[in-house]
Every structure is written in C-alpha cells, then in structure tokens.
Design a protein around this nucleic acid. Sequence first.
DNA 1: CCGAAACTGAACCGAATGGTTTACGTTGCG
DNA 2: CGCAACGTAAACCATTCGGTTCAGTTTCGG
Lengths: 205, 205
Amino acid sequence: MNAEAQIKKGRKFDQVIEGARSVFMREGYEGASVDEIARDAGVSKATLYSYFPDKQHLFLAVLETECAQQAEVEFLEDTGDLTVEETLHVICKTLITFILSRFGQDMFRVCVAEAQRFPELGRAFYDSGPKKWGRKIALYLETSKAQRTLCIDDSLLAADQLAQLCRADLMLKVLFGIQNNPTEDEIDRVAAEAVKTFLARYRRP
Amino acid sequence: MNAEAQIKKGRKFDQVIEGARSVFMREGYEGASVDEIARDAGVSKATLYSYFPDKQHLFLAVLETECAQQAEVEFLEDTGDLTVEETLHVICKTLITFILSRFGQDMFRVCVAEAQRFPELGRAFYDSGPKKWGRKIALYLETSKAQRTLCIDDSLLAADQLAQLCRADLMLKVLFGIQNNPTEDEIDRVAAEAVKTFLARYRRP
DNA sequence: CCGAAACTGAACCGAATGGTTTACGTTGCG
DNA sequence: CGCAACGTAAACCATTCGGTTCAGTTTCGG
C-alpha cells in the first residue's frame, strides 16, 4: 500500500490542480472559466468534473494546496554564529523577498479578492501566511540568545511590527503595479531600515 | 451657466454611480452584473447605457469618484498646541480608523483584485491613497516644530514606516475576516505602539 | 492480452451574461 | 400648450457560463 494518501483517484489530478492554479491566479475566481482551466490543464472538462463536484470545490482545493505550500516557507533554520541584528536582517530579507515574489503576490491578491465570498479561505490564508510568520518571528525573539539583546514585553506584536516594517515602500508599489521588479539592493535597504527601527525600539538599553 | 461641470447629462446620473458603487464593492468587477446594478440603482438598463458605453467605463467612473473621495480624507489641520508625540498619535488613530473603515477596506479589496485587469486603476488608487497619506505625513515630519523633536533623513520612508506600523495586528485580521469590529481601545493601542516604535527610531537624541 | 477504470471530445442544456432596440411615459422649459 | 429631451419596461440578441452526458479511445495492472 502506498504511503501517500491516494484517495484522490486518477493520474491527471495534479494536472488539473496545476491548470486551475494558473488560471485562478491570473483571472480570479469569477474571471476564470472552467473551459479555460480544462484547456490549460490539457484535460477534458469531464475529467475535471470527475475529480471535483463544482467550480467552487476546485477553487478551494487549489488554494488549500497553495496555503499548505505557503506555510512551509522557512527562514534560516539555525541562526549559527550570526548576531541578533544580522539574524533579524536575514529574516527581513527572506520575508520581503517572499512577499514580493510572484507566488506571494498572487496568493495575496486572490485571497483578498475572495475572502468575502469564501470566509474559510480568508482564515486559511491568514493562518498559513501572516500568522505563521508572526509566530515564527516571535519564537525567535523569545530565544535566550535574542532575549539577551532585546527587551520585549509583547513578542507577537513586536513580530508583527517587524513584519509590517518589511512591507514599507515596496509592497504596495508592486501590488498596484507602480514598480515591477525590485532589485536586491532595494530589498536590502528596506530590510536594513526595518531592522534599524525595530532595534531602536526593542534593543535592551 | 452652472459652475458645476454638467457635461454628464441626466438627472439620474448619481443614482447610477451609487448603485454601481455598492454592487461593485460587494461583488467585484466580474461578479457584478449590469442588470443587478440597474436594479440596485432604481434605473433602467437603457438609462444606464445612455451614460456609459459599457461596463468597463462604468466601473472606472465609479472608482474614479471613489479615489477622489479617498484623496480628500484629512487629518487634523492645525496641530494646535499638541506635542509632536500627541500629534503623531492623532495621525495614527485617524489613519488606522480609515484603513479599517468599511470604505477603506472595500476600496482596498476591489483595487487589489482588479489592479491587474485595469493597470491605470492600480496607480489611481495608490496615488490617492497610500501615496497621498505618505506625502501628508512626510510634510508634517518636515515642519519646523516636528524637526525640533525629530531627526529624520528620509522623511518619505519614515512616513511610510509609520503608516506601515499602523497596519500592525488589526489590518490583516479585518481584511481576512478574522476580526470584525476593532474597538477604539484596540485602535488606540496599535496607534500608541506605532508611535512608540517610531519615536524610538527618530526622536532627536 | 484481456477487461475495467480512466480519459476524451464534442454535443448539449438551461440560465445568465453584456449589450441593443423599440415603443411608450414623463418632465420641464420656452 | 407643444415639443424635445429624458427615462422606462421589456423584449431581444449573440455569447458564454457551469455543468451533464455519452459513445468511443487510451491506459495499465493482473
């Protein structure tokens, strides 16, 4: 018996998900047509409907896998011999790069657009994205090494402030099409400024 | 001759815009049907189409007026005898309240969703929203009164960092339906924390 | 190499879409 | 009043939508 849960029958399951993913991300929920998805997936509509009862379930299945994928993004496991400041900088760069990535932007866009129509989607995205990052950062802030340098009473809020500082300048510009491909230098600068502001507030005196 | 530019003919023009506004904000662009808009506006479809050549132009006309309205939101004109810290707190509270308002959330949602399909919309929203706020805050940071207390080299980035700190905790929770009606106390706390972090970085030593 | 399961392609359905037109009221100003 | 502009309701159009059906082909394990 295969270890992978193969309850979902059929060989072309992944094709369907992948086609649906690309069309939904490009067109949004209402803008995507099932015919286009089937065409894009290289699959007949009948096959598609043998996997999913309707468009809605297909949409949610896609975003389920996307949220799962989003939840698995990691920043540097071991902080090694980096200083706290250096570690924070790495964390910020990783977060900013993720936020500005095609994947991050598409996910954000679609989930913002459809969070009203699909309330459970809103929560799923928030949990696997912003909340997860907040938790991870807060966890680092509570390590004994960080505690030796920092003085924080509410580590979750502090983590969220840091994450929010990472969105300064670039995030909205990219989201609304004002800027397209931020250079690594720009990302580095925003990260540096975020860390600077964060440490000014939370560095142990 | 009337001072108001009355190029747009017809008495029910405003009704149409208002109906379109409410339906578009509720359903998004693709989700909104012209029939529903006409019904909601209390107007026949023929009348609607006598004002606008098609759905797209109607959509853009609605968001044009919304962006204009968004651009006119003001925070405390004269800072009076408030300290810089108090003024920043007022600015933050005003911004947070706006961001979390029904209007602010709906605008953000729709513009994020359709910025791909309508690139000019993305820019219009950014200019009349985030950019305008950034400019206003930066302008205050550059007043001689603020300069006496603060030490800032890049006032636009500083302003954006402050605005971004205002989005900590509550903004994404509301956007994704995790939280519904933040109390004034919660808003006050986020504002206070934003100012605290901001001043830690930028207060003149 | 057989047979069942998976898949295909295209036709088909009813409903709804954006958009147009027609034939008929209503309003208000000179 | 008279008349033109404004507005209406409803029928109408072609197209597209999500979803179903089915006869036929491909795939693949036993």
